[in-house]
């Protein structure tokens, strides 16, 4: 608790540092690789000194990978999935 207060104080006051809240605002751009070099440096520096943000980002990235792997795996329909009644309804409606 006392350590966190010292950390918060340092990050807020010291030159070239960003707070965890600012880190949070940069996460998306950092991962999209669109952070300006200066901000990128601060972001990476914050990650070196802040365990919470480092852990957070790792879990955040794992979440994205997990969501992508699982939903992308569902994207393989079998050919016999073709619902005949729906196909017919579409072809009938087209003629009209």
């Amino acid at each position: 608790m006392i350590m966190r207060r010292i950390k918060g104080f340092m990050l807020k006051r010291m030159h070239g540092m960003i707070t965890c809240r600012e880190f949070e605002d940069f996460v998306l751009s950092y991962l999209d690789d669109t952070l300006p070099p200066n901000q990128r440096k601060r972001f990476e520096w914050h990650m070196k000194i802040c365990r919470e943000c480092r852990d957070y980002l790792a879990a955040y990235q794992r979440t994205i990978e997990l969501g992508q792997s699982i939903l992308a795996a569902d994207d393989k329909p079998l050919p016999d999935d073709v619902p005949e009644d729906l196909v017919q309804a579409i072809l009938d409606a087209r003629g009209r």
Binding site: R4, R5, K7, G8, F9, L11, K12, T19, C20, R21, E22, F23, E24, C50, R51, E52, C53, D55, Y56, A58, A59, R62, E65, L66, S69, I70
Partner: peptide, 25 residues
Amino acid sequence: LPVFDQNDCRLELPWTQLVSLQELL
């Protein structure tokens, strides 16, 4: 959403383990 204290420090329980993607899948 993530939470922060009054000094804008992140409140995040320590991650002693982060399961690998392969294991999760």
